[in-house]
Design a protein around this nucleic acid. Sequence first.
RNA 1: CGGGACGUAGCGCAGCCUGGUUAGCGCACUUGACUGGGGGUCAAGGGGUCGGAGGUUCAAAUCCUCUCGUCCCGACCA
Length: 569
Amino acid sequence: MYFSKLFIPTLKESPADAEVTSHKLMVRAGMIRQLASGIYSILPLGLRVLRNVEKIIREEIDQIGGQEVFLPSIQPAELWVESKRWDFYGKELLRIKDRNNREFCYGPTHEEVITDIIRKEVKSYRQLPILLYQIQTKFRDEVRPRFGIMRGREFMMKDAYSFHADEKDTQHTYHQMAQAYTNIFNRCGLKFKQVQADAGAIGGSFSHEFTVLADSGEDEIGFCEICGYASNLELAESKPPFPNITPSIQQDLKEVETPGKKSVKEVAEFLNFPERQIVKTILFENENGLVAGLVRGDHEINPVKMKNLIGCEWLHPAEQEILAKYPELHSGYVGPIDLKLPVYADHEISVLHNFVIGANKPSTHFTGVQVERDFKIEKLGDIRTVRADDPCPRCEKGTYHVKRGIEVGHIFILGTKYSSAMKAVFLDQQGKENSMIMGCYGIGVGRTAAAAIEQNHDERGIVWPRNLAPFQVIIIPVNYSNEELKNVCDSIYNRLKEMGIETLLDDRSDRLGVKLKDADLIGIPLQIIIGPKNLATRQVEIKTRKTNESNLHSYPEIIEDIPNILKGL
RNA sequence: CGGGACGUAGCGCAGCCUGGUUAGCGCACUUGACUGGGGGUCAAGGGGUCGGAGGUUCAAAUCCUCUCGUCCCGACCA
């Protein structure tokens, strides 16, 4: 490809509305342009990168028996009503009406469509398992789209769905898929972790996320470097406490005044207790009303883990307006003693003695509190968010490391959530009707490309991992209008093309500096710089974008060696 | 949805508070000349519903109201 023929509008300055590096660089490198909030046009250079991601995905998913399909983006409401998600999905579902006033949505995901196909066509265990996938744009009307293509409303996604006759077979595919994902992200040149994850709104029993490590990421993950345990922080298990020996002196419950001291920090300072000796009571609301959660003062409560412990449909922090309806609750002084709400406590509480807790009375706390003696716990469990350096829950010696990351892939075992709601059933060997067991497996294609930039860039621009790079090599003549340079460039270009190497030739009449800046910005792994002085001694300069180091090599011999150099990158 | 900010040429911004010539600057763009190993120089140019609507005023980019859009923080989220 000749640079002058390529539509690649590069920018010197970053757009004002871009925040993260990948967004800035993708716009500056002429890969994307915004059309509306969270909606982007993909320009030729950007598309080449996305196609590379897609190609890797296709190869790996095909490898484990996936078959590609292309599904409608506009989906009828009835399907979503059937799966009960028409209401549940909320405002993120972009709803539209056709000329006959029939309701549709722009698909945010395709469980319903794929389940509909399978239930109509598959009747027997003999036809299972089936693994189908699609790579298409989807639309989720995000509350707050941000970070360019990383979290757009319209986005390119690979979604795979599998249907099985039994649980064991589902797990088999799940594990194959996990391996395929590992291969995919390795081939994309990413540093990532497979972490245990919450299934969230999509439902299901078992799931993992693939998270690319990056400080700009929105997710936090906790992992142990000794045993390899890794989990999204919203799910990461905390190690149960060692049972504490009851202290010889068990203090009596005592009411103390704590005028105006509401936060753990204030109370701890005022009473001269360590924060870990204070217990916080946090109120949540779920489908059954208010519930209370207890964690140690120096810990943070984790709503996802709490929801899982309770086993409720949903759980939100209680709103101030709701609290106003309960005159017995005093913000900052809520406690479990004589509280007429179900109380869920973190397991660390079980080994605490003589602690401090709100007294349900303004400006008052209790000291000398003991679990069981002073209040009852509905259920004890792991409901706090783990921190760096907390002990690993799976091994003896390890401790947690906490890092930020970008979720680029997510795999789920769905069970029969959709198949039973939508009656996707089959007859087993005994002629008995069963719901199919499903798995679903997503990868954000654009997000993967953006994550690659977050992880691979420098102050000059993008440094593409070789397999994602829009071109492998860029030829930069100091002056293309010089007949001799032009001939050399053209012949190198043609030879590389013959060798099947995607090559860009910067034939523009701009000065060298401009061409070098652009080459650095768009991040092509290898630059071949051709100038008259070096050429006079039969040499060309080869620069590796990753290291920004360049060396002279004798020409034309070096050209035959380019494939090897690329392999080593 | 709550809080905050911004909208002036393709991009980045100044001007607005304190209303008053023809609305500026840098980059980009066009033409020409010189130049040619890290965004070069000089000269001459083109490009604006000042987001939109309404209002105040002799006069509005500037003040007021409404509205649309975009971004940030939070809540939310495969």
